[in-house]
Design a protein around this nucleic acid. Structure first.
Length: 151
DNA sequence: GCCAACGTTGGC
DNA sequence: GCCAACGTTGGC
């Protein structure tokens, strides 16, 4: 079983919007490393939902992979900001899984808290300049953050 | 293949 | 709003 962290700006798609949507395709990611992680996600993998560019910034809840990655439809839409001229229906460039809402934390586990927790020292999201919007996390990190949300 | 210019991310 | 850190683009 693998665990992941995905970032979202709450002004664009918040944990409450996620709750309302119930399931959403994690589309509009346009970075190859992030795409490769999206394609590594398997049904049942758990996902930390992280608010970036937010007040406060931090982990806001949990989701779960509902369906493995399939073509991101935005790449075919010439009017979309996420249009991909190189993509064809036969050879799509961008893929994204469906992620299901699981729960909203009682409180946001803030980035500042993540930084002060020794067990989370290795997390990619804490690395200087780490802008990747989809990241792997370890089971230990995942469980610790869930615990912190209960404290 | 190099690398400068440019655009984006995202914390602060 | 600022700006550091990256990723991408495109001229050569």
């Amino acid at each position: 079983m693998a665990y992941w962290l995905v970032k979202s700006e709450p002004e664009v798609f918040s944990i409450d919007a996620f709750k309302g949507a119930k399931v959403t395709q994690w589309d509009a990611v346009r970075n190859y490393q992030a795409r490769n992680y999206l394609q590594s996600m398997k049904v049942g993998h758990e996902v930390l939902f992280y608010h970036s560019n937010a007040e406060p910034t931090g982990v806001a809840g949990v989701g779960k992979v509902k369906k493995i990655a399939y073509p991101d439809g935005l790449q075919f839409d010439a009017k979309s900001d996420y249009f991909e001229p190189r993509a064809t229906k036969d050879k799509p460039v961008w893929f994204a899984p469906d992620i299901q809402f699981v729960r909203k934390f009682k409180r946001v586990v803030t980035l500042a808290e993540l930084r002060t927790e020794p067990a989370l020292k290795g997390m990619l999201v804490l690395k200087r300049g780490m802008r990747l919007s989809v990241q792997p996390v370890t089971e230990r990190e995942f469980e610790r953050i869930v615990e912190m949300s209960e404290e």
